[in-house]
Design a binder for these strands. Structure first.
Length: 354
DNA sequence: AATTCGGGGAA
DNA sequence: TTCCCAGAATT
């Protein structure tokens, strides 16, 4: 039987997905490597985020900032606005910090080894290895969620995550070729995304099913084994949409660290396990004729949130913040939960093109 | 080693 | 609903 990398690369040459950050399949087969800036940007966006979600954001960023130097030259606030809705907002701040460092310390050229890349903000073990392999052809050992699934199934390894990750690394070190390492890791990831899927894997179509223990024993779907997850608690609070007579909405900025760090929000109460202290309009940032708009629900990584939504027409508010005019709101750095809140008051505000 | 970070698509 | 996604940083 041919080695795994031979079978996988042959499959990749005929089945590779065409994605915005990849070179064309024809170029790829001729050994053309993609732009490191594109690879880096896509890899950071793809951290815990699906290809379908990333696509439009990637296109928007490339159009707005064609090079890493362009990104370094812009304001962080513009990056936060462009990243709004994509989630995990520390990625956006690290993205900017990384661009600044590449521009100022490396003359706008990304380091070419995984070891050097990992010294940059927002680039960890996975992303450094992926960029080095895909953009520079280094024979690194890449392990992501797809590869964890493919490799644990191939070896029928029932060690639970995250301990099994080291075995996955050894598996990859054993099978990754020195020639076309970037295409190989992308082939592994495409395989995991399209055939070796979490549920109902299409084993009959898999190019490496002949020596896959998961397939042979008909137990592929049970890997990887994971520790049971904790239930998500629910937190509650109230949000206040203050509107000026001209329709502008009062926004404030979250601190740069923690949940929704650096993002723009309307004033809210604290988000607590249960209602405590002042609630409803009694907790509003200013006395006024607050009108109830029901509540919105939103789920974060580790808790559910239920927010009462209130609105009122006011002329001024205390504290730090600014009035955002209706035509500006779509361009603000608003996380999705805040778009839900504002939509509950003015449901047509985000239907206008940004 | 555990926890904290968003959001959306699929089943 | 639950799961999981081209994970990193922090504690």
């Amino acid at each position: 039987m041919k080695p795994i990398n031979i079978r996988l690369l042959a499959w990749y040459d005929s089945h590779a997905r065409t994605l915005p950050w990849r070179v064309s399949p024809g170029e790829g087969r001729q050994g053309v490597l993609p732009d490191p800036y594109h690879v880096w940007l896509s890899e950071v966006m793809l951290q815990q985020t699906t290809v379908a979600t990333v696509g439009p954001y990637f296109e928007k960023f490339i159009a707005k900032w064609p090079t890493v130097k362009n990104l370094a030259a812009c304001d962080l606030e513009d990056v936060m606005k462009a990243w709004a809705g994509l989630g995990y907002y520390s990625r956006a701040r690290n993205l900017k910090a990384c661009a600044d460092k590449v521009a100022s310390e490396h003359d706008g050229k990304f380091p070419q080894t995984a070891a050097e890349l990992q010294k940059l903000p927002g680039i960890g073990p996975y992303t450094s290895a992926a960029i080095a392999a895909i953009a520079f052809g280094e024979r690194t050992t890449v392990v992501d969620g797809n590869i964890e699934r493919v490799s644990t199934r191939h070896t029928a390894n029932s060690t639970p995550l995250p301990q099994v990750k080291e075995h996955c690394r050894e598996f990859m070190d054993r099978v990754t070729p020195a020639d076309r390492p970037g295409d190989f890791v992308q082939a592994m990831m495409d395989l995991g995304a399209t055939i070796c899927t979490p549920r109902n894997p299409a084993c009959s179509l898999c190019p490496i099913n002949d020596d896959c223990q998961g397939h042979i024993q008909q137990i592929a779907e049970q890997f990887p084994v994971k520790a049971p997850k904790k239930p998500k608690p629910t937190r509650v609070g109230a949000a206040f949409v203050a509107q000026r007579p001209d329709g502008a909405i009062w926004l404030t900025k979250r601190p740069n660290k923690g949940l929704l760090g650096g993002m723009s929000v309307v004033p809210t109460t604290g988000w607590t396990a249960s209602k405590n202290g002042a609630t409803g309009y009694a907790a509003a940032p200013i006395v006024g004729d607050w009108i109830p708009h029901g509540h919105i629900r939103h789920t974060f990584t580790h808790f559910h949130l239920e927010l009462e939504v209130w609105s009122a027409h006011v002329n001024m508010l205390p504290g730090d913040g600014w009035w955002s005019l209706q035509h500006q709101i779509g361009g603000e750095a608003l996380p999705t939960v805040m778009k839900k809140v504002i939509s509950a008051v003015a449901d047509d505000l985000f239907k206008v093109p940004k």
